Amino acid sequence: MTTVPIGLPTGLRRALRVGVLGLVLAVAAVVVPDAAVHRTEVALVKVERADGVAVRDQDVLWVLAVGSDARPGEDMLRSRGDAIQMVGLNTRTGSAVAIGLPRDSWVPIPGHGHGRVNSSLTYGGPGLMGRTVGNLVGVQPDYVFVTRFPFFEDMVDDIGGIHVRNPRRFSDDNLKPLGFARGRIKLDGYGAMAFSRIRKTLAGGDFDRSANQQRVLRGIQQAVRARADEPGFIERGVLTVLEHLHTDLPPGELFRFARALAHVDPAKVTTCVVGGSIGNVGSASIVRPNVAQARRYGAAARADAALRGC
């Protein structure tokens, strides 16, 4: 991988202005306070695809967005994934779709038998995780996008928090003892992290958690759009991302990727979560995903990044 320099061409920065703070890069915590030491917090990795289709020839780009559960000192590209969203972006119509996957989904992992889908990041990095999720959904991602959760918390605080619509009250003795009220609520950075990660006290477990992650993404997108016209707001965020970003994309392809993000129309964004059932393998609790449903979502959104309901 190579580090993206902050001295990018003017055209690339212009394309990044709003798009980079949109649907997918919201996962990457794109606006954080600057720091003297810039460690890698965000990675954008191109997936080698057998069909060899050039990105510039596609109307729809597929990005697997992953929140890495890496602890301090651990390689975020070789730690278990937590938040897992397969995102499609239509560069022609501006539509976008996010298909949420429970992290404990028990699936075939190429070369490693069966396991939880999030363990594929540990076994083989972004490339293997991309193949694993792609096989489940029936759509192979063009890119895998990985970020750390602490970076995410800082970003939410720096943009002044976000609002989400919570369908039911819930709490967690460890992460949020006082809980989250039902209705429209405001979250700070820690609250957004906890809202995205709590699972055991949710009626739908891993499935409800994935839906909550999508609610947080929408909240970030709305907060960023609300402040996008403030002088220096977008520029500060873009520069910080570039200082923390590692990617194997050349500048021209990064430019095309940014333009795809810039064209996303918030009114044309659909979010769905792959369902399934709870089970056990030995003493481990797992999710048995509804593979047929995952494939239906992938097939329906493959050509245009749009779903007409879940």
Rank of each mutant, 00 (worst) to 15 (best):
H112F: 15
G138I: 06
R92V: 15
T91Q: 15
S119W: 11
I84P: 00
S105F: 07
H163C: 10
P102L: 04
V156D: 02
A83R: 05
R131F: 03
V146Y: 04
V87N: 03
I162E: 02
V133T: 10
T93F: 04
M129F: 10
G127M: 14
G134M: 05
L128P: 15
I162Y: 02
D104T: 11
R165G: 02
G130H: 08
G161P: 03
N118T: 09
R116F: 13
F151C: 00
T132R: 13
G88N: 03
T122H: 02
D142S: 04
Q140D: 05
A83Q: 07
R165Q: 08
N118P: 05
G124Y: 14
I84H: 03
I159M: 13
G127N: 15
G134N: 05
F151R: 00
F149A: 04
R148S: 00
S120Q: 12
Q85W: 06
L136D: 03
S120C: 10
R165F: 01
G113P: 15
S120T: 08
T132N: 07
V87I: 12
G113Q: 14
T132Q: 11
V137Y: 08
S120R: 13
Q140Y: 05
R92Y: 13
N90T: 13
N135L: 09
P110C: 10
A83L: 06
I162C: 00
P102C: 08
G124A: 01
V139N: 07
M155C: 04
N90Q: 14
T147D: 07
V144I: 06
L89F: 06
T132E: 08
R116M: 12
V164A: 07
F149V: 02
S105M: 12
D158S: 05
F152A: 02
T91Y: 14
R92H: 15
V87C: 06
T147F: 00
M86P: 08
G138V: 05
G138R: 10
R148V: 00
I109W: 11
D157C: 01
M86W: 04
N118R: 11
G100R: 05
Q140M: 09
A83N: 09
G111S: 14
F152M: 04
S105E: 01
V117D: 06
L128I: 09
R92L: 13
V144E: 06
R92W: 13
G115Y: 12
N135T: 06
R148T: 03
V164P: 14
I159K: 10
W106V: 10
N135S: 10
V144H: 08
A83K: 07
G100Q: 07
L121T: 04
A98F: 00
E153Y: 09
E153C: 03
A83T: 11
V164S: 11
P150C: 01
F145C: 07
S120H: 11
V164E: 11
D154W: 08
A98M: 08
T93L: 12
S95N: 12
M129Y: 11
D158C: 00
A96C: 09
D104Q: 12
